[in-house]
Design a protein around this nucleic acid. Structure first.
Lengths: 137, 137
DNA sequence: AAACAGTCCACATAGTTGGTAGGATAGGCT
DNA sequence: AGCCTATCCTACCAACTATGTGGACTGTTT
């Protein structure tokens, strides 16, 4: 399951996608409009900035805004940043691979199943972008 | 990600699938063969029994064994028992549904994305069974 | 300089995870 | 009946993660 943090991140990103190319948006505005605890949101946005998703400006007229066009930012990337691995097992993760203990990957049925799950999941998450966060008109 | 508990559960189930119709298997045997902490494994097997996946026998000659034919037990069922919801959000879970706060499901882009992920995932997990845990010959 | 708004660090608290201890319970055998 | 066996059950624990909060600091704008 996605953490609360991740859900907050997506709410914030949806808001920033709406406001794309309309200048910086205050953390406090996102917080009140999307009902996300202010200080918690601060941390999340900062993390997204460090991951190169957002850009920020300090001082009057400052705030956060999307660094790239929302249609270019994949949902999969966001999940990896705020929620961690997408795969259900470390040994089938593309971005967070870790060998599993006492388990020969070449002879592990679960391994194969989880690769299929990963591919099916990525097939969705890698094709959806921030644009898809907005409700259809 | 699947918890350690879930991974242990699958190891144990793989072993019991191998030994299907060969009588009860001791917890201690599974523990040593699959390198799963004994007491932890006890809890896991008990949970699987309560969930109607396993059957047990006490006393001499006792142990655990599969209640149904392994080809009839879906991997999805095991994940739900030992790991919880398969969906990435409560509001798109079939078996653990919970409405999300401050979020209109009919106008939530994330909701739609996660439904697609859920369906793609279930498409794999509902078609794989315990048999698929065993390595191909 | 003053107001503003993000940055950073430290902490608090609650809940989950992974694992252990010890005894209760029940079946099998002589 | 009485003993062995093996599961069943309750409680507990340490470590970690998730979810926040508080307060001081840095840089910008006017």
């Amino acid at each position: 399951m996605l953490s609360k943090k991740s859900q907050y991140a997506f709410k914030a990103l949806a808001y920033l996608t709406e406001k794309y190319q309309q200048g910086p948006v205050l953390i406090s505005e996102i917080s009140t409009k999307k009902r996300v605890p202010l200080k918690f949101l601060e941390n999340i946005l900062l993390e997204l900035k460090k991951a190169d998703i957002l850009e920020s400006k300090k001082g009057k007229g400052g705030g956060y805004y999307l660094k790239k066009d929302p249609s270019q930012v994949k949902v999969a990337a966001i999940v990896r940043i705020v929620n961690g691995p997408i795969a259900m097992l470390p040994c089938v993760s593309l971005n967070f691979y870790k060998r599993c203990d006492n388990c020969d990957e070449t002879a592990c049925g679960l391994h194969d199943i989880m690769i299929k799950v990963r591919d099916a999941t990525l097939n969705v998450l890698e094709t959806k972008t921030l644009i898809d966060l907005l409700p259809m008109k």
